[in-house]
């Protein structure tokens, strides 16, 4: 929903890290994105393409997105299941006492620098 604005956050953060480490060119930015983080990878890449081109530091930077699978834990039977497939209801025991264990993450994992430093 808000891919462009999160791209701006990413660019701000990456620029700060680059400045602190004397980086003049970034070749890759790697994100880790949960399956239910409400961010759509293809939109994110489109926004990245548009926004990153405006910064010399990021002109050649490719955006890599590592997905994080969404997993839900069931309090009643202790099983873990795939959230995208079964949602809030546990496929093992039918309980609704479940909570998302992972899958909402949205992390900047690392940057790869191609300068000579």
């Amino acid at each position: 929903m808000h891919e462009l604005s999160v791209v701006f956050y990413i660019i701000d953060e990456v620029k700060a890290v680059a400045a602190a480490n004397d980086v003049s060119e970034i070749s890759k930015v790697t994100l880790q994105l949960g399956e239910v983080s409400s961010v759509i990878p293809s939109y994110l890449k489109d926004c990245w393409k548009w926004a990153s081109a405006k910064h010399r530091l990021l002109e050649k930077a490719e955006l890599e997105i590592e997905p994080i699978r969404a997993l839900t834990y069931c309090d009643d039977c202790g099983k873990i299941y795939h959230t995208l497939r079964f949602g809030k209801t546990c496929p093992n025991c039918g309980s609704g006492h479940t909570w998302l264990k992972q899958g909402q993450e949205f992390l900047i994992k690392e940057i790869e620098c191609s300068d000579s430093n």
């Binding site: 990413i10 990456v14 949205f106 690392e110 940057i111 790869e112």
Partner: peptide, 13 residues
């Protein structure tokens, strides 16, 4: 190439 690990939530700032 240098890889700088950030491991930070996009929403952290």
């Amino acid at each position: 190439v240098r890889v700088i690990e950030i491991k930070k939530s996009v929403f952290e700032n």
